[in-house]
Simulated assay, not measured.
Amino acid sequence: MKRYKTYLVNSRFISARVLELSVARSNSRSFPDFLPGQYATLSFPLHQKLRGERSFSIASSPTDSSVWRFGIKIFGRYTSALQDLRPGEPVMVGGPFGKFSFDQFKDQSAVFLAGGIGITPFVSMIRWATNKKLSNDLTLFYSVRSLADAPYREDFYALEMLSPHLKVIYVTSDLAGNDPSARIISGRINADLIARFLLKKLEDKSYFICGPLPFMKAMEKIIGGFGVPKQFIKTEKFGIGSKAFIETGSPMPKIAFAAWGLAAAVVFGVVVRMEQARRSNAATQNLVNSPSIEATNNNAPGSAVPSMNNVNQAAPITNTSQPSVSNNNSQNQSSGTITQPSQPFQSPRAAPFVPRTRMS
């Protein structure tokens, strides 16, 4: 993947939790062109807290020859460290990537469904269509917690003033902000709300969906209920290992493949450890459940171990050099009575140590 060396022009908060980074197109001839809705990778070589590459959707219009803009939600340690960047710092840009793009010829009437930070690719599309003065009908439904959390609100207001073909509807969970006359609706995006603002045939439009996975599934179900063919429904999904929205089938950055490999290694290690623990527990359980040797309190025939009370009556071990026990004693032993031998037991002494002499 080819990367382009450039620098940071500006950074600013465009909502309570969304930071916009503007990166210079240092050399417009060598810097690549992109389609509205695509994404790129960013890396910051001078920052220890910003190691590796991350993918972010491009929010600027392809017609903007001076900068690339990226809207980034502050979430986690990496994105929080982006606040420390200062203008002039070097940036490496890779890409662009993705097929989630608006086509002015195929998408004559387009409906954009955005959730949260999923708004960024639509900012690029709407800016581009307005700058090109296209006559395509564009309707944006933007689901957000509150208007304070909605980035690019001022930009959308200015773009609506410039284009009579653009309509933006905010759908918030903040009941206090409900204002239907200003197209600010409290609640959730549903089939009735979409039909109310689109008016015309719903199945004859192109639908673009971008946002969190639950939001996307809900929108796909609603649009599918309108009888819209699947080829007219485009979705942008989260990429593994990054915070960007990456469409299925688009080339993935190396950081995503590295994240996949790391996740697979972690899962494999956990499975191996669980199997080892299971086998260890099974072996311990087998030892606990094994039958123990039972001792009896009398020396009845068939008992496994003589009782402790009869230890002193146990027959001593005789040396092979001692006289053998008589037949009468053998009969008494078979009846359970042990007869002491005529001579006490003497343990054999070790042979005296004789030093070896060296043979000449």
Rank of each mutant, 00 (worst) to 15 (best):
A148L: 13
D149F: 03
A150K: 03
A150Q: 03
A150E: 06
A150M: 08
P151N: 08
P151C: 10
Y152C: 10
R153S: 08
R153V: 04
E154C: 11
E154Y: 05
E154L: 14
E154P: 03
E154M: 12
F156C: 05
A158V: 05
A158L: 07
A158W: 09
L159N: 07
L159F: 07
L159R: 01
E160H: 07
E160R: 01
M161Y: 11
M161S: 15
L162Y: 11
L162S: 13
L162T: 02
S163I: 06
P164W: 00
H165Y: 08
H165K: 02
L166Y: 07
L166G: 01
K167H: 09
I169S: 09
I169C: 04
Y170P: 06
Y170E: 09
Y170L: 08
Y170N: 04
V171S: 02
S173R: 11
D174T: 10
L175G: 07
L175D: 13
A176T: 14
A176P: 04
A176R: 11
G177F: 09
G177P: 04
N178Y: 15
N178F: 09
N178E: 15
N178Q: 15
D179G: 10
D179W: 10
P180K: 09
A182F: 12
I184P: 10
I184H: 11
I184T: 12
I185S: 04
I185D: 00
I185V: 13
I185K: 06
S186A: 15
G187R: 06
G187T: 05
N190K: 12
A191P: 02
A191Q: 06
A191E: 10
D192E: 15
D192T: 11
D192P: 05
D192H: 13
L193I: 09
L193N: 04
L193A: 11
I194H: 10
I194V: 03
A195P: 03
R196I: 10
R196F: 14
F197I: 11
F197Q: 12
F197R: 12
F197E: 14
L198W: 02
L198P: 09
L199T: 12
K200N: 11
K201G: 09
K201D: 15
L202T: 05
L202F: 05
L202M: 04
L202S: 09
L202Y: 06
E203D: 13
E203K: 14
D204C: 03
K205L: 11
K205I: 03
S206K: 07
S206N: 10
S206R: 07
Y207N: 06
Y207P: 05
F208S: 01
F208Y: 13
I209M: 00
I209F: 05
I209N: 03
I209C: 01
C210L: 00
C210W: 02
C210I: 05
G211F: 08
G211Y: 06
G211N: 05
P212M: 04
P212C: 03
F215S: 00
F215C: 07
F215L: 08
M216P: 00
M216I: 06
